[in-house]
Amino acid sequence: MSLDRYIEPMIRELANPTRFMSLSGTLLPWVGALGALLLAVGLYLVWFVAPADYQQGDTVKIMYIHVPAAWLSLFFYMTMAASALGTLVWRHPLADVSQKAAAPIGAAFTLICLVTGSLWGKPMWGTYWQWDARLTSMLVMLLVYLGILALWRAIEEPNRAARAVSILTLVGAVNVPIVKFSVDWWNTLHQPASVFRLGGPTIHASMLVPLLIMAVAFTLVGVTLHLAGMRTEILRRRVRTLTILEAERLDAQAA
């Protein structure tokens, strides 16, 4: 007996957009509320509890939004790359929906990362911008995101657009490890990793705890936006299908 007989219906069940709508509808308010709550706790710790840095003073407060934004930029790109595989390999109907919802959110957090980094760089490094490997690869990240968003608009037919965007997404995924390890591979003005590194974090707990809380809060806010975006995208596709159906019926009546 083939195992496919059991696996296939299971995948179809999970891929069912109606099932996704009911599950995500239940989850969405909880994830959103938890994200908002953690964000409030995180901001309180950042502004009223966490100490000023002995060298940077209060500008270290920029770190608590800059680092989570950078993490979300990579997180959403990896979500998109996984969804691209889902589209190309398994033709999962929700994969393209997920990818399309993730792109603008990822692009927005990449922009936040670049802008806050720049505003942190001016008082600390004396410059808004430096063409070092980390900053440049992050700028490339934003351009890849924008390229993906533009490609969607350029191709009218959704299935062709999904395939083209998926290929571009996977090619662009090369940039993810470049962003992460740029600070190790090249001599950058940007500091090397101090949280996710071999040998553990090098930040003191008084700063690490608020940073991690902010990172989790940002992630939950991002996931909430992603789920909401996927739900809207499913509705958009229903609208498209029904509009085509209506046009076909009107054609049939006219004939």
Binding site: T59, K61, A108, I112, L119, R231, L235
Partner: peptide, 28 residues
């Protein structure tokens, strides 16, 4: 002052995130 850079970072971040939330509601 440093306060200017810190405040501007938080304000711009808040604006972008609020924009994302608003866009999600309107589109829906």
């Amino acid at each position: 002052s440093h306060t200017f850079f810190i405040a501007l970072s938080y304000i711009l971040t808040a604006l972008v995130v609020l924009g994302l939330i608003l866009r999600a509601f309107i589109d829906h």
